[in-house]
Simulated scan of single mutants.
Amino acid sequence: MKTAGNIAIILVLGIVLGFIGRSMRTPAPSGPGPDDIVHTNEVAPGEEPLVTDSTEIANDDIARPAPQTTPIPGLLTEFELTERSGETVRSEDLKGQPYIVSFFFTTCPSICPQQNQKLKTLADKYKGKGIKFLAISVDPETDTPEVLREYAARFNADADQWLFLTGDLLYIRRIAGDIFQQPVNKGFHTERFVLVDAEGNIEGFYSWPEPKQMEKLEQAIEEMI
């Protein structure tokens, strides 16, 4: 009987302690507390936003080409491609004046039209001032000279100043990687303009969506011309 009584007492004590512990336990928070910092897009009345202009967080650092003290065997150093006119354009023909290289494809629905609109702005600003623009297709099977002529007409591209080029895809990939240090593939390209000086050397890579980089590109063009 004494054993049974002891067991009953232990059970009662366990239940009581359980209730006490549950009442002392802190409930998990269902939301931020009064002292918690919450990051939102909203601005409290009377406060200024942390960033008032997207250019404040823009990347304005210009990428420069990797230095090469000696030529690397097997890498292309010259190129030739077919222009929309059907004529062959050689890198040797371009020496003597600076030029900007970009990569695109005519069926690109959004990025390429924006990119080429940036080029049109530059082309109009520097028309007749001794700088050329090269738009090289990364979908050459689609972008025949005839297709490029129709596409270039959308931007009223001057045939002497703004060249639209095509060729074999594998060869274009080599031109992009070996000469202009840009990764491209069919339907894929970077958002960079490559500025080349009159001697055929890369001056820098400029990201056209970045306003500050575009400002620096114009400054570099002004110095070259």
Results as ranks from 00 to 15, higher is better:
A157N: 10
A157Y: 07
D158K: 01
D158R: 01
D158V: 07
D158C: 08
D158Q: 08
A159N: 11
A159K: 13
A159V: 05
A159R: 12
D160A: 03
Q161A: 02
Q161G: 00
Q161W: 03
Q161N: 01
Q161P: 02
Q161L: 02
Q161F: 05
W162Q: 05
W162S: 03
W162G: 01
W162E: 02
W162Y: 05
W162N: 08
L163E: 01
L163G: 01
F164H: 05
F164Q: 00
F164E: 02
F164K: 03
L165K: 05
T166V: 00
G167A: 05
G167T: 01
G167F: 00
D168H: 02
D168R: 05
L169P: 08
L169F: 01
L169Y: 00
L169S: 05
L170H: 10
L170Q: 14
L170Y: 12
L170P: 04
L170S: 14
L170I: 07
L170C: 01
Y171P: 01
Y171I: 03
Y171A: 11
Y171E: 07
I172C: 12
I172V: 11
I172R: 05
R173W: 01
R173M: 13
R173H: 08
R174W: 03
R174P: 00
R174S: 11
R174E: 11
I175G: 11
I175A: 04
I175V: 14
I175P: 09
I175S: 09
A176K: 07
A176T: 08
A176C: 06
A176G: 05
A176Y: 11
A176W: 11
G177L: 08
G177P: 02
D178Q: 10
D178Y: 12
D178G: 10
I179H: 07
I179E: 12
I179N: 12
F180P: 07
F180L: 04
F180A: 10
Q181F: 09
Q181T: 09
Q181G: 02
Q181E: 10
Q181V: 03
Q182T: 11
Q182A: 06
Q182M: 11
Q182I: 03
Q182Y: 10
Q182E: 12
P183A: 00
P183W: 14
P183Y: 13
P183G: 07
V184E: 14
V184K: 14
V184H: 14
V184P: 14
V184G: 12
N185C: 06
N185S: 15
N185T: 14
N185Q: 13
K186Q: 13
K186N: 15
K186R: 14
K186M: 14
K186S: 15
K186H: 13
G187C: 12
G187Y: 14
G187D: 13
F188K: 15
F188E: 12
F188A: 15
H189V: 07
H189S: 02
H189A: 09
T190A: 14
T190G: 11
T190Y: 15
T190P: 06
E191M: 06
E191K: 06
E191P: 04
E191A: 12
E191F: 02
E191S: 03
E191I: 02
R192G: 00
R192C: 00
F193S: 10
F193D: 04
F193M: 09
F193G: 12
